[in-house]
Design a protein around this nucleic acid. Structure first.
Length: 262
DNA sequence: ATGGTAGGGATCCTA
């Protein structure tokens, strides 16, 4: 039995509810990890999503951030935020077990610009997350950490290396912070799949700026990732980006990332 | 170096 897991920064679930519903019907993922829902829990549009056949776990706040997990299977052991999170009021982490796989929907802070207070907050968030994810590794479970990490790990994940070499989303210090977390024992599913099958890295971009026709010129970055435990990596069948969704009318600036577990 | 676009919700903040 295969399991299709998606991660998508939807950039307001209320603005894009119609797109989400038709996308669920077209792609039929078993599990969806959403970021930037931008809605309080009491205003989350549960009904249409449940009518499409999904159970829902949510962790929202007003205007900013917000994460959610949708699953065709029951959602068990739901955890809101993570132990050691600096500011739990920022809705950036939601974890649950579904169909015997532990999944997390993660929204790492953007950081604004290198050196900014928000950049330092981003680095602290990653360090705190590192400690939590190390604890998760000791469970020896199938675990999928999906989300918007707001970091392009390697030069091949950026359309213009020079332009981004010391900039937010690709600066060496934030890359190192993500590398430290990953190297503790997680597998970057898309990077591994791209390399193993010698695929064009450009086809793994997940985000295109709304400005200056970035999408039309494929000026993208790979900043949304699945970090998976070794037990889950053994089951990976396919990894890809549903870039078609970025071409929608009034799209999110992110495309969904898709992972198939055998 | 600047400012370009989008969403939320308030006339600016975040990305």
């Amino acid at each position: 039995m295969t399991m299709l897991i998606a991660s998508w920064n939807i950039n307001s679930i209320r603005t894009r509810l119609d797109q989400l519903i038709s996308w669920l019907q077209k792609v039929s993922p078993d599990v969806v990890l959403l970021q930037e829902t931008k809605v309080l829990d009491e205003a989350f549009p549960r009904e249409f999503i449940e009518d499409s056949g999904y159970n829902i776990a949510i962790h929202g706040q007003k205007s900013y951030n917000g994460v959610a997990i949708l699953s065709k299977y029951p959602l068990e052991d739901v955890q809101v935020g993570f132990s050691g999170q600096e500011d739990p009021a920022q809705a950036r982490y939601l974890e649950a077990v579904t169909n015997q796989v532990r999944v997390a929907s993660i929204y790492v802070p953007n950081g604004q610009e290198v050196g900014h207070d928000k950049y330092l907050y981003k680095l602290r968030f990653l360090d705190n997350l590192y400690h939590h994810t190390n604890t998760l590794l000791t469970l020896n479970e199938k675990i999928i950490l999906g989300g918007d990490y707001n970091i392009a790990p390697f030069d091949q994940d950026v359309y213009d290396v020079k332009k981004f070499q010391d900039r937010i989303l690709a600066s060496p210090v934030e890359r190192q912070a993500l590398r430290k977390l990953t190297n503790a024992g997680w597998i970057d599913a898309a990077a591994a799949y791209q390399k193993a099958h010698d695929l064009n890295p450009e086809t793994f971009y997940t985000w295109w700026d709304y400005r200056q026709g970035s999408w039309e010129q494929n000026r993208g970055l790979r900043i949304d990732h699945f970090l998976v435990s070794p037990q889950a990596a053994d089951c990976i069948d396919k990894v890809g980006v549903d870039a078609e969704t970025r071409g929608n009318t009034r799209p999110s600036d992110h495309a969904p990332v898709l992972l198939t577990l055998a």
